[in-house]
Measured scan of single mutants.
Amino acid sequence: KKSYVLIKVKNPKTKETHTIVVPEENLEEVLKALASQPNVKVVDIERFP
């Protein structure tokens, strides 16, 4: 059974918020990819039960 993680990201320029759902096993690479985006800020990470 896969567990999923909900990542909320915000664009500081446009103030838009997006929610991305990723499998927990991919969380680290997704966070690394997001960290390299200049106008993306991770605001929240939630685990799915």
Rank of each mutant, 00 (worst) to 15 (best):
S3A: 12
N11H: 06
T14P: 01
N26I: 09
L6E: 04
E24G: 04
K2Y: 09
T17G: 04
I20C: 07
L6A: 13
H18V: 12
A35C: 05
V5I: 07
K8M: 07
V40Y: 09
K41G: 03
T17F: 11
Y4Q: 03
D44K: 09
K10H: 15
K1Y: 14
V43K: 02
I45V: 08
N26E: 09
V22W: 03
Q37H: 07
L6G: 07
V30Q: 03
H18L: 12
K8D: 01
L27S: 02
E16L: 05
Q37M: 09
E46Q: 13
T14E: 04
K41L: 14
A33E: 09
K13W: 09
P38E: 10
I20N: 01
A35F: 07
V5Q: 01
K8N: 04
V22Q: 01
I20L: 13
R47K: 10
A35S: 10
L34H: 01
H18G: 05
V22T: 04
P12G: 14
K13E: 14
P38D: 10
N26Q: 08
V30W: 12
V42L: 04
E29Y: 10
V5E: 00
P12M: 15
F48I: 14
N11Y: 07
S36Q: 13
K13F: 14
K1N: 12
E28M: 11
S3F: 12
K15V: 03
E24V: 07
E28R: 10
I7V: 10
N11R: 04
K41V: 15
P23V: 10
R47L: 09
I7Y: 00
I7F: 01
A35T: 08
E25I: 06
P23M: 08
T14F: 04
L6Q: 09
V43H: 02
K32Q: 09
P12Q: 15
V40T: 10
K15Q: 14
V9F: 15
V5N: 02
P49N: 06
V9I: 06
E25G: 06
E24M: 08
L34M: 05
S36A: 12
H18F: 15
E29R: 14
N11K: 04
F48R: 06
P23D: 11
I7P: 00
K8V: 09
S3I: 10
N11W: 04
T19L: 06
N39V: 03
P12N: 15
V30A: 10
T17A: 04
K41F: 11
K32N: 09
E46Y: 14
T17H: 08
T17M: 10
V40M: 14
K2E: 12
P38A: 10
